[in-house]
Every structure is written in structure tokens, then in C-alpha cells.
Design a protein around this nucleic acid. Structure first.
Lengths: 378, 378
DNA sequence: GCTGACCGGT
DNA sequence: ACCGGTCAGC
């Protein structure tokens, strides 16, 4: 059975609001690490992956993995009955066909309880491989929303180009063309390694970065990535690393491949997904450990953290291993940007010919969108 | 070529919002003095005239006059991509078929650039003569907007009547009639002369009225208008005055005549344009003199300036030379009042049988609407 | 049938 | 104040 108590129902409300237009029905996969939802959008063009980590709940218990087939508009309706600051407890018995939601107003005797019918949904749970990207942009989510909204008034598509000058969003329309350049002062560093990403997250979460230094010691600034930095790193790790868990994450990753070179990075998943997405079991520890320094560091990172400062202070941060230029449907990006209310930062990760990852990482989990680039002049 | 940098894109956005419903395509005529747009509304009933003076730009350069044929809804779209406080630079090459707009966020590395297609538009640039009116009402723009909106709920037309009791807006509808009276305390002075208008503008702009007196001396108020009040005052001044600049504004006034007695007022324009638009050289000083007491007083004005105080403090101000009563379509007036966001004051100028002038004068230019009165019971 | 304007709700 | 939905006009 599942019993998960969220401190603020508002979190769930915002989450549902941001994806309900894209997906109408989906399974919430519950396991000891948290809740996960993965689904193609209704027109099967984009993929949405949501994760709420167990640690983000005030109380979390899930005896064994179970899927909860939810109609998102029903859930949205039921959630509207909660105030944003109500505590919200989700409960489902093992073979239940209903999800029980209890809202407890803070400092009050009001308790509302709802039972929402569940449904059976074929979940072709697509594996989403952890891939390395050639470019990444971390920026204020409101800024991203603004850019795609502006450009969507002009045309259907946007070309996102990461080059030495910075990041350019360009769109062509019948009556006007638009181009927005986010200039990067100074050199654009290579993209961060998964490890670095983890460390930052841990820091953002308030964990002690005991080993900041050691990263560097390890020669974290390393040698740089020729191309896809990450991969390289991957390889290395792979060699020296424990490949043990690679299978865990790998199993179903064939469906939606953000990147064609996933074979190599199996080992990585541990870091990235560890914490938030799937297995998380053992991985977790290491992941947290922003500390596992040496090995990871060597490949490519070197920069990110410096500007990391406040997770709450919007800022820009770019990483680039090679020039990237991709074209996407603005309609989807505009839709993705509904997640802006979840967190004030968004991260875009891209490699040529590979689906774009738009990542909204909020404290207790994330919403990630994958969107394949347009090819040619479609 | 044209290159004009506006400190706040918001100014242009508001301007476009206020006229785009009335006019869909129009030429922005650029010359060294600024940008001008003149167009009949789509149903050819009203005339809109917009002016943005060169001095209102942070930087302004226009090598030689050129028309920019703009589709206003395209421009509106493109402007929506600017934040109100972005700096906005308009650029067009000499024979360009695109207008380039660059938005620079203050304090940021974000630069957005748009190219909007231009079109060829037959511009029958109508001359708008500077005319004298028998009545003028300066009032808070929000008040005007409220009045026409309220009355438009009752009927199609409004009769605007300026008499000794003040200004009355009256409308008759099927189920109700409405009448709003703006009472004038004390005598209603004659309308202001152009010169006085100029002076006020200069003052509002913060120019020093060093020469209050001297105005009177030079008889700067020129000779103008024989007819309406202005004339009166005019006459007096006329004698003593220089007629030098009279020609400047007159040139093309045949097309749309708000007033039939334009012949006489040639000299006035100077003041108006002097300071902000064109020459500004000498006129300026005299204009400023809010103090020019003696002479002016005699003819007709004598009042206006007193309440002039803050350009930002809404107030009422009436001027009347003779009783005026005109009927207008409320639909248009409601539409005109979209310009309320540009400035908190609006000025109505009227003479019997002549198109009403609704003038929204904001710091960096103006939007003026001309609407012919309804005749008989149409 | 499509685009634009107006009104109401969040 | 902004966005979405509905209604009217072209």
C-alpha cells in the first residue's frame, strides 16, 4: 500500500496543472523511492516524466511498487478541493481501484477526504536513458516561458542554437522574424557532468558539500571533453566503475531515445537517476555524495558551481561542448513552460538530432519534458 | 536610414494598442523631426494622427524622410515581445522592406531582435490644418473614458454641449437617457491661443519660463485667428507680432479639415512645434511664460494656466468662445479612449459643424483623433 | 470559416 | 492584471 503525505497540496496542484493539458491519463508508479509518472503526450510527440521523491514527502511509505492509473483531469478536479497549504495525504491499498486523498488544513480541524476512481492504463513505460548532452542552458523559468511565448506569436518553430556567443532562440514567421540572444559573458564551459549536477543539487538541498575541494583535486577541471564531454566521462567511469547497477536503469530504455549514444552511458544513470528517478536504491547514497569525487570529476566539469549561488536567485548558466542547433515546435515548448510555477529555474539540455530535455527541478522532484527536434523543413 | 532608440518600449506598445483597432495599416512617416502617422480609420469616418518627436527618443537619426508602411497588427505582435521597460531601437535602411526592432533589457545580456516586413501603402497624407476651436475641454483622460463608456451603454450617440454652465455629455437610448454635466466654477474663459498652448506644453516639459513677460513683449501670440476666440486674442497680439514662422505647419492642410477657418492661424504652429518638434529655438522662451499676465488676460484666456500646475495631476479646464453643441458616435469615442493609458489628460476641442479633436498629448508626442459630428438625426 | 473585440473568471 | 472563452463581424 501507499501512504504519502505532502506538506503542501499546492505542489501537487501546480504539478498537475502543468501537465494535464499534455497528458490526460497516466500511471503514477509508486515505489519506495517515490512517485513517478511517464507518458507520451496525447499526440505522441512529446514525453513527460514526473518524479516526486520519497524524501520530499512529510511521510512516505510504499510497501511495494504499484501503478496508480489516474485520469489527470479527475485528479485535477479533486485537487482543486484542497487549499494550497493543506497537508495532503495520498493513500491507496494494494489492489485498490481508488486513490484516497485527505486534506488537512494546517492549524485547523478541517479534514477533507476524497476518493478518486483509478483506472487501468497500459503503461508502456518507456525507458528514458540518461544521456549526455552537448549543450545545456540553465535559466530563469520565467525567462524561458517569455521567450517561447513571444516567439510563438510569430511562427510555429524556434531554432535554438548554442554557440560561443551564447544561446539564440530564433523564429521565422510570415510577417516577422525574431531572434533572442542570451549572451554569455566569458567562455562557455563544457557541460556539467552528472556528478557535478548531483553535487549542486545536494548543495541546493542544503547538504554539506564536504568535498568540494576534492573534486578539484581530482582534476575535475580536467581535460576537457573533446566532444560530448559526458560520454567520455562515462566511459572512464565505466571502466573503473561499478557497472553493477547499470542494468537497473537500462531495462526499458528503448522506446524514447533522447540520445543515440546511450549504450555507453549506462553507468551514468546511477548518478542522475539515482536520486530522483528510478532505481535510486543503492545509487542514492553515492548520488548524494557529492563526494564521490575523484573519478567523476576528471572528465569534464570544472565550472558550474561557481555561479550556482542561490537556488532561488534566477540566473543564467550555460554549458557547451560543441555547437548545437535544433528546431522545435513552439506549441510544445509553450506548453512545457506551464511548469514555470513549480520552480524559478529551468534547464534545457540538447545535442544535435536528439530530443531536447526541458527540466523543471523543484525541491521535491522534477518534471521533465522531452521533445524531438524537427528535421529538415517540416 | 532611420535609427530611433526609445527608452521604454512600453510607450510604443501603448500607442499601438490604442490605435490598432482603428487602423490596420499605415505609413509611419519618418523625418528629422520624428515619426508621424496619419490615417483614416478603417471605415473612413475618423482620422488618427500620431506624432513621436525626435527629442522624445533617447537617440534619433533620420537622414531623409521615408515612409514605413506598417501593418499595425504585425507591429503589435512584435512589440508584445518587448518588455515595457526594454529599450527599443527601430531601424530601417533607406529602401528597406523590413523594419528592424531591437529590444535590450535594462541591466541584462538579453538582446531580442525582430525584423518585421514592411508594405507599400498609398499614403494620401491628409493635411490636418491647425485650427481654432470655439470650445475646448481639458480633462482627466480616465474621466473622459468613463463618460463615453457609461453613455455607450445607453445609446449610440452623445451630444457634447459646451455652454456657460459647463460641459454636458448627453445620450439618449431606448430604455434610458443619460446626461453628465461637468460644471465649471466661475466664468469659462475663451479658448487658449496656440501660443498659450505651446507655453503650457513647454512648462509641462519643465522648461524655464524665464521670459514670461517678454512673450507679451514680442507679441508672440501672433496675429492669428480672426474668428473664434483665439482670434480675438490673436488680433491683439497679432499687431505686435512676428509672422515669421507661420508657414511651417500649414503646408498640407487641405484633405481633412477639422475647421474651416484655418487660413488665419499659420503663425501658430511655430509655437507648437518649435519647442519640441522642430525649431524650438526662439519660441521656447516666450512660450514658457506661464506668467505672461497682462496682455493675455485681456483677450480671452486668463484662466487656463492657473490650474495647469502638475501635468500629472488630473484636473478640468474649459475654454469657450461661443456655445457649442455637437453630436458624435459613441462607438468611436469609446475607441479613442483606449489612449487613456498614454497620459492622464485628454483635450477635446470643438467648433460647431467641425470635426471634434480628441488630443492625447504625452511627453514624447501625441495621438490625435478627429471625428466628424453627426448631422441631423443620423 | 476565420479573425478580432468584448466580457468574465482566476 | 492577465488569460481564456464567447460572440460578432468580415
Amino acid at each position: 500500500m501507499l501512504e504519502a503525505k505532502l506538506a503542501e497540496a499546492g505542489t501537487l496542484k501546480k504539478l498537475l496543472d502543468s501537465i494535464k493539458e499534455l497528458v490526460t491519463d497516466a500511471n503514477f508508479e509508486c515505489n519506495e523511492e517515490g512517485l513517478n509518472l511517464q507518458a507520451m503526450d496525447n499526440s505522441h510527440v512529446a514525453l513527460v516524466a514526473v518524479h516526486l521523491e520519497a524524501a520530499g514527502f512529510k511521510r512516505y511509505r510504499c510497501d511495494r511498487p504499484m501503478p496508480l492509473g489516474v485520469n489527470l483531469s479527475s485528479l485535477t478536479k479533486v485537487l482543486k478541493c484542497a487549499k494550497d497549504d493543506d497537508e495532503c495525504t495520498l493513500k491507496a491499498a494494494d489492489e485498490a481501484d481508488v486513490l484516497n486523498l485527505v486534506y488537512e488544513a494546517k492549524n485547523s480541524d478541517r479534514i477533507a477526504e476524497y476518493d478518486m476512481k483509478l483506472m487501468d492504463i497500459d503503461s508502456d513505460t518507456l525507458g528514458i536513458p540518461d544521456t549526455d548532452y552537448d549543450a545545456e542552458i540553465k535559466m530563469p523559468s520565467a525567462e524561458f516561458a517569455r521567450i517561447v511565448r513571444d516567439l510563438s506569436a510569430l511562427g510555429e518553430s524556434v531554432r535554438i542554437e548554442v554557440s560561443k556567443e551564447g544561446v539564440r532562440f530564433a523564429s521565422e514567421g510570415e510577417s516577422a522574424n525574431g531572434s533572442i540572444l542570451l549572451k554569455k559573458e566569458g567562455e562557455i564551459p563544457p557541460v556539467k557532468t552528472d556528478k557535478e549536477r548531483k553535487a549542486e543539487k545536494a548543495r541546493a538541498r542544503g547538504e554539506k558539500p564536504e568535498e568540494d575541494e576534492d573534486e578539484e583535486n581530482d582534476g575535475d577541471d580536467e581535460k576537457p571533453k573533446e566532444k560530448k564531454v559526458k560520454k567520455e566521462k562515462v566511459k572512464k567511469e565505466k571502466d573503473a566503475d561499478e557497472d553493477v547497477e547499470m542494468d537497473e536503469d537500462e531495462k526499458d530504455e528503448e522506446e524514447f531515445k533522447p540520445n543515440s549514444d546511450d549504450e555507453g552511458e549506462k553507468s551514468e544513470p546511477e548518478e542522475e537517476d539515482d536520486e530522483e528517478e528510478e532505481s535510486g536504491k543503492k545509487r542514492k547514497k553515492k548520488a548524494n555524495g557529492s563526494s564521490k569525487p575523484a573519478k567523476k570529476a576528471k572528465t569534464a566539469k570544472g565550472k558550474g558551481k561557481a555561479k550556482k549561488e542561490e537556488e532561488n536567485q534566477p540566473y543564467f548558466e550555460f554549458g557547451m561542448n560543441s555547437h548545437v542547433s535544433l528546431t522545435f515546435s513552439l506549441k510544445y515548448l509553450v506548453n512545457f513552460s506551464k511548469s514555470t510555477s513549480l520552480t524559478n529555474m529551468v534547464e534545457l539540455r540538447m545535442s544535435n538530432e536528439v530530443p531536447l530535455l526541458v527540466d523543471y527541478d523543484f525541491g521535491q522532484g522534477f518534471v521533465r519534458y522531452y521533445l524531438a527536434p524537427k528535421i529538415g523543413d517540416e
